[in-house]
């Protein structure tokens, strides 16, 4: 497992003046939400650049050989182009064989779980190959810098996870739910075929709550998303644990999507999860990078542990779609687990 973050680090304290809110109030949010530092990629960097940076690091250091790769699954909300897909771009630039399958999946916060689940299914048919799951997003490029609700928490980044079959018969439990009827709660209205980006969609407007954004920017209905997480995720976790025949106490690490510290603390309290078993510091240190949040919070907190030992881990993600899911798996004795910084 490899995490990649850009080198450009922005401090929340330096951005407070960008927002049309009283400073005292904004600084209180810093404490509650965990705003502190976030990593933002350069304006000319693309999501495929992060994918390639990670793949080249792995190949150069012999983490994996080109001939071992059976498929590349790229999960992203930030395609370089409508056509071709990032997986094909990566395939071409790495010079992979023609029998390597390339798949792009447009998924946001649940992108790691969705990518893994597809990898598991592919591995049923490629017994001797490895599947590479790449989560890569640069959503900061779509967030208004004058939107205090969205910009302080956003971060760019990527992760590459290599998945292969094992010889033991331990099971991985996975549960995923979707509700497209609430999809507008997290939306970038313009830029697709429904509403192409124009000079008009790029006009910044005061949204009435002190924030400024355009139709080209990402918008989150914070209240709707928060309530969705608090209502849907605790029963999801209960059901997953019941299916596994375990309790919260049997899990060593809860590696969850990282929307903000406040939401995670409320979720942990509701589900009886000890804070010390659930790292909540990705927004504080790097920002919320969407689909790569789970691997990034993993490699930035417990990389050494995962190389030395094995743990029962619960992954959970929730967000755009709306979608929410969980996975329980034994994880550890990894040959490689690392966070690297790119110049992208």
């Amino acid at each position: 497992m490899l995490g990649i973050v850009p080198e450009n680090e922005y401090l929340f304290d330096d951005e407070v003046g960008n927002y049309d809110f009283p400073e005292k109030q904004t600084m209180r949010l810093k404490k509650v939400m965990g705003y502190n530092k976030h990593r933002i990629s350069k304006p000319d960097s693309a999501a495929s650049d992060f994918a390639l940076f990670g793949m080249e690091h792995m190949l150069k250091n012999n983490w994996i050989g080109k001939e071992e790769i059976g498929a590349i699954i790229v999960v992203t909300l930030c395609p370089d182009h409508f056509v071709p897909h990032i997986s094909n771009i990566v395939h071409g630039k790495l010079g992979l064989d023609n029998d390597v399958l390339c798949i792009d999946i447009p998924q946001g916060c649940c992108g790691f779980l969705v990518g893994l689940s597809q990898a598991f299914m592919l591995l049923e048919h490629m017994k001797d190959k490895k599947v590479v799951v790449i989560n890569t997003d640069i959503l900061s490029h779509k967030v208004s810098k004058k939107d205090r609700n969205d910009f302080p928490l956003i971060g760019d980044g990527a992760a590459v996870t290599v998945v292969e079959n094992s010889n033991d018969d331990r099971e991985i439990y996975y549960e995923m739910h979707m509700d497209g009827s609430r999809g507008d709660a997290l939306i970038i209205p313009a830029g697709g075929f429904r509403m192409p980006s124009t000079a008009q969609t790029a006009v910044m407007e005061n949204t009435g709550d002190g924030n400024y954004r355009s139709l080209d920017n990402m918008h989150m209905d914070g209240s709707a998303v928060f309530n969705f997480v608090q209502v849907e995720v605790p029963p999801l976790l209960e059901n997953t644990f019941r299916s596994c025949g375990i309790t919260v106490d049997d899990i060593d690490w809860f590696l969850f999507h990282q929307p903000n510290k406040f939401m995670l603390q409320k979720l942990a309290e509701k589900s009886g999860i000890p804070f010390e078993k659930m790292p909540m510091n990705l927004v504080e240190n790097f920002g919320n990078p969407s689909g790569s949040s789970i691997p990034l919070v993993t490699v930035s907190n417990i990389a050494d542990k995962l190389i030395e030992n094995e743990y029962k881990c619960c992954f959970s993600a929730f967000g755009s779609g709306l979608a929410w899911g969980s996975m329980v798996t034994d994880l550890g004795k990894l040959s490689h687990c690392e966070l690297i910084v790119s110049d992208l």
């Binding site: 109030q25 209180r28 949010l29 404490k31 509650v32 939400m33 205090r148 609700n149 709550d209 209905d221 914070g222 209240s223 928060f226 406040f262």
Partner: peptide, 12 residues
């Protein structure tokens, strides 16, 4: 008030 004001209020 918006959702982030509510979060601030909850903290208080």
């Amino acid at each position: 008030i918006d959702s982030f004001d509510i979060i601030t209020l909850i903290n208080m």
